[in-house]
Nucleic acid binder design. Structure first.
Lengths: 340, 340
DNA sequence: AGCAGCCATGAAAACGTTTACGTTCCCGCC
DNA sequence: GGCGGGAACGTAAACGTTTTCATGGCTGCT
């Protein structure tokens, strides 16, 4: 109970607290022999340095904060997994604050983390340059994930949504679908916008005769379902649908199935993200794969490197590539695929 | 740059540091007038108390740690969401360490959190009484989630897997399926065992003539797929399959579909968890719903209450109920259900 | 033998708070 | 008018580390 401190170890080992500190940290400045003795005592006493005291004097918390939006299912867990893995590899702790759906909300969370973290990982629809300047100490190493922020001061790691969406749209066109409708994501969402841009660019270039069709969505299955219904109700039914994320694609597929519309025979379908479940829906969903774990990992590693050499200039992180994954819903495969 | 401390505020407001502390915390022991002046100054200087210094003297971190296993997708994110929401509501921070797949791994993570948290939330297949005694300070408020630990000293919050599995099995039997096979979860997993027990109990009681059939699994879609194949290959094919979790059910459904076996006409299917995607697979999956968000929330609230009144005796948490959700795969519904 | 210099070690300051304890002041009551 | 008491406020100790600086002993060289 009475928590034991460095002094207890020092007394027990017949040395000063300074030596204990040295033995337990660098190890230099102390004889190998006494060092070992000290470590033995520390182990025997189950001594654990008081984190707060150390933070106070060291001015390092060995913790990085992750500010995440109200993310759904697979994406969230994969992202966290990547972040967490990398954090552990770097000996860093992870302070998480998720499910933020308003700007004030995020600001409050950001302020609350003040002083408890050495660096920040921020992914949120609500952050822009002004927000960051207002709520973030300018010297706090920060990495933005999938953010529209252009400010040179912040390092940003983005998924190349544009290229991914463009490639998938082109693929759909190449396999014979010209009338492609797009189910958009939330309006203020950066990824969603980029994906829509990619879709529009491919349409303009490879299917210039047809007018792009974009219906609203918000990344939820529910929205996908409604969008699917809406598309079927149109006078000119598209022959392919490209949803801004997999969840909406799944919802859309659900709508089609209930209406008796066959995928991909009657209408092709594609999503974005390649969430694990994409391959298990029926039929398996063609989509654009984002290596989410790697995204989280490299985001954390960017912060880690920033606080390992603080002088090092922030370099614009490379965008994170995606690849299209052709399964069955896009109609490019004749026979059912084998289990991958 | 030069971080501003309580002294700066004190000097600027012409008071002592003690008054600043009082004004900013309790507010008592200081005139309303000076209190306001101090708060104004603090705001103007953007003063933020140094968390570590406060922890050091207060001996409270206002942080709780969450030790989680290598959880998949939806379950993980829902759980974290619940925990995070409750934590924010209580003004607590959340230190997360996930993806632990070995006992040493978990022990290391646990030790690393030592002193940085006021309480712990632990969900892991690898913890048992001995593990906890060895790696956890006995006075650290701790709540175990879905754990087999029986020790009175720890508060445990469990999902009532047994009752849920029993109910679903009974439901399958009631709707005309007697030959029910069970796809088991990981061997050392407590939830998995409880679910299997529930299945066996229901079989023994309501379908005593048929021998229970249990095939191995590990909670992954892959395992479900293989189990599905294996079940189809049996000489006496079951007319219903109950998977220990939804992921395996989805994998199993995939196997059935590839084999041309129709669900639920040829064979009924049920899962466990009600992950969000369960309703979007085709056909929508009957399953046992676990209110994961609530589980996380109440786990955190249990810890919170423990550290709000430390003397309060730990009370055995109530098990967390489940309810069966009848969709289409169990064959109990004639027509396709409407979108819920 | 003496001296320079290195190395192990200890003493003490510092980090930024909270809080126990004094001090001062003012008010009311005898 | 003196005196008791409470409220506002200040002083300083304490929390448990790390780290700078001083000290002493030893080594190796001249």
């Amino acid at each position: 109970m009475a928590t034991i401190t460095i002094k207890d170890v020092a007394r027990e080992a017949n040395v000063s607290v300074a030596s204990v500190s040295r033995a337990l940290n660098g190890g230099s400045g102390v004889t190998a022999e006494t060092g070992q003795r000290i470590r033995d005592v520390a182990l025997r006493l189950r001594y654990i340095p008081h984190a707060a005291a150390r933070m106070l004097i060291t001015r390092r918390t060995n913790t990085i904060g992750a500010l995440l939006p109200d993310l759904y299912g697979e994406f969230f867990s994969e992202l966290i997994r990547g972040i967490d893995l990398a954090a552990r590899a770097h000996g860093l702790h992870l302070l998480v604050s998720s499910s933020h759906d308003s700007s004030e909300d995020a600001a409050a969370a950001l302020r609350a983390m003040q002083g408890r973290v050495d660096g920040m990982l921020i992914m949120s629809a609500h952050v822009d340059d002004a927000f960051l300047r207002a709520n973030l100490p300018e010297d706090l190493p920060t990495v933005l994930i999938n953010s529209p922020v252009q400010d040179e001061a912040y390092r940003v790691i983005n998924v190349d949504n544009y290229a991914g969406a463009r490639a998938m749209t082109k693929h759909l066109i190449d396999t014979g679908h010209q009338d492609i409708a797009f189910i958009a994501g939330p309006e203020n969402n950066f990824d969603a916008q980029q994906r829509e841009n990619g879709y529009r660019a491919a349409m303009a270039k490879y299917a210039s005769k047809v007018e792009p069709v974009v219906v609203a969505g918000d990344f939820t299955e529910e929205a996908g379902f409604r969008a699917g219904e809406a598309l079927l109700a149109r006078k000119k039914r598209p022959n392919a649908v490209f949803a801004a994320n997999d969840m909406m694609a799944v919802g859309c597929m659900h709508a089609f199935r209930e209406a008796g519309v066959c995928v991909p025979q009657d209408i092709a379908l594609a999503g974005f993200d390649d969430i694990p479940v994409a391959r298990y829906v029926a039929p398996p969903l063609s989509t654009v794969r984002v290596r989410i774990v790697d995204l989280g990992r490299s985001a954390l590693e960017a912060v880690a490197s920033m606080l390992e050499n603080p002088d090092h200039q922030v370099t614009a992180g490379p965008t994170f590539g995606c690849e299209i994954v052709v399964r069955e819903t896009c109609g490019a495969r004749g026979a059912p695929a084998s289990h991958e």
